[in-house]
């Protein structure tokens, strides 16, 4: 057990160190591309980490998580379009809008379990997708270009690639720290208890669904932050961000990295997006290789990459 813990820790430490030092490497080699790519990876890793909170720890298989990416993104995009460029307004609005959306769809969908829960979260996300597609003032299907990134006064300049990268990385690490605290808190234990045995938790005195809902809202809010970052990263937001395949991608990242592990979603996001990048350079039918690869991992490494690392060091 001890050594398993160590190998995982080493890998996680290396990954985090790599992410922290990446801008240095990029600056020394002049490879700007890698910095842009990893900014995107980090943002989606944050989204995956937020999904992992409800999926891995809470046992709630949400298939509509990309909706929050869209809501966070549109909050930034619409406010920018209407002339409100301050990040101090844009970002809190993005978080609050995501939280409210999560509260509403959570309150409705958490009445169901299993497949029905998956389907209803999917349906709500698709609804958000179609609503965004019909916003003709904000570009409808074509999406909305964001001409100026969120303005944080003299504090940080998001147009500076390196500064923006570090803002995203800080959000990711901060988000993971928050999730770590939550998971080990009273609240977190209750949520994991409900995942394990809902009837038992009710019998010892917990209103299971209320804890589930709060967890659902926290998760959605964190993902809303990822949405705000993503819109700033691409200077653009469109309905496509919340299309159901994106929700699927997030789920794959979580499962690939290891559900219910703190850094699993980060590793999952890195591996998934790097593979996507590499394979798409080899062939345009990259999904044909990616599919079976994921299948193998799901079949032979139940706990994802984190589970695999644990097994390796156990020998």
């Amino acid at each position: 057990m001890k050594s398993a813990f160590n190998l995982r820790t080493i890998v996680v430490a290396l990954v985090v160190a790599g992410l922290v030092l990446l801008p240095v490497y990029s600056a020394l080699t002049g490879k700007v591309f890698i910095l842009t790519m990893f900014t995107r990876i980090i943002i989606l890793a944050l989204a995956a980490a937020s999904l992992n909170l409800i999926m891995g720890y809470g046992g709630m298989m949400s298939f509509g998580h990309a909706a929050y990416l869209g809501i966070g993104g549109y909050a930034v995009g619409i406010l920018a379009f209407e002339g409100i460029g301050s990040g101090f307004i844009q970002w809190p609005v993005a978080l609050i809008a995501s939280a409210l959306f999560a509260l509403v769809i959570g309150a409705l969908s958490l009445r169901t379990r299993g497949v029905y829960f998956i389907m209803i979260t999917l349906a709500f996300a698709q609804m958000a997708y179609y609503i965004a597609s019909s916003l003709s003032r904000y570009g409808a299907d074509d999406g909305l270009t964001i001409y100026k990134r969120s303005n944080f006064g003299g504090l940080i300049d998001l147009s500076n690639r390196t500064q923006f990268y570090y803002v995203c990385l800080a959000c990711l690490l901060g988000g993971i720290y928050l999730i770590w605290r939550i998971v080990n808190s009273r609240f977190g234990l209750v949520v994991q208890g409900v995942r394990s045995n809902e009837q038992r938790m009710q019998a010892i005195g917990f209103h299971a669904n209320r804890y589930r809902l709060v967890c659902f809202v926290i998760s959605g809010t964190i993902c809303g932050l990822a949405g705000a970052l993503l819109a700033n990263n691409t200077d653009f937001v469109s309905p496509a961000v919340m299309y159901w395949t994106r929700s699927g991608d997030l789920m794959v990242m979580v499962i690939l990295g290891g559900m219910g592990t703190l850094f699993g979603p980060v590793i999952g996001a890195i591996v998934f997006l790097l593979l996507e990048e590499l394979l798409s350079q080899i062939t345009e039918y990259w999904a044909m290789i990616m599919g079976p690869l994921l299948l193998l991992i799901v079949l032979f490494a139940r706990g994802g990459i984190m589970g695999l690392l644990a097994r390796f060091s156990r020998g």
Binding site: F187, L189, G193, S196, R200, M201, A203, G205, F206, V214
Partner: peptide, 27 residues
């Protein structure tokens, strides 16, 4: 009907927790 992936102590502590103040503590 127990929480199978928790330890024995965790199972009992959660029951105690349910009756010792609220559990909306996140930190």
């Amino acid at each position: 009907s127990l929480l199978r992936d928790f330890t024995a102590a965790d199972n009992v502590a959660l029951a105690a927790q349910a009756h010792a103040g609220h559990s909306y503590r996140f930190w």
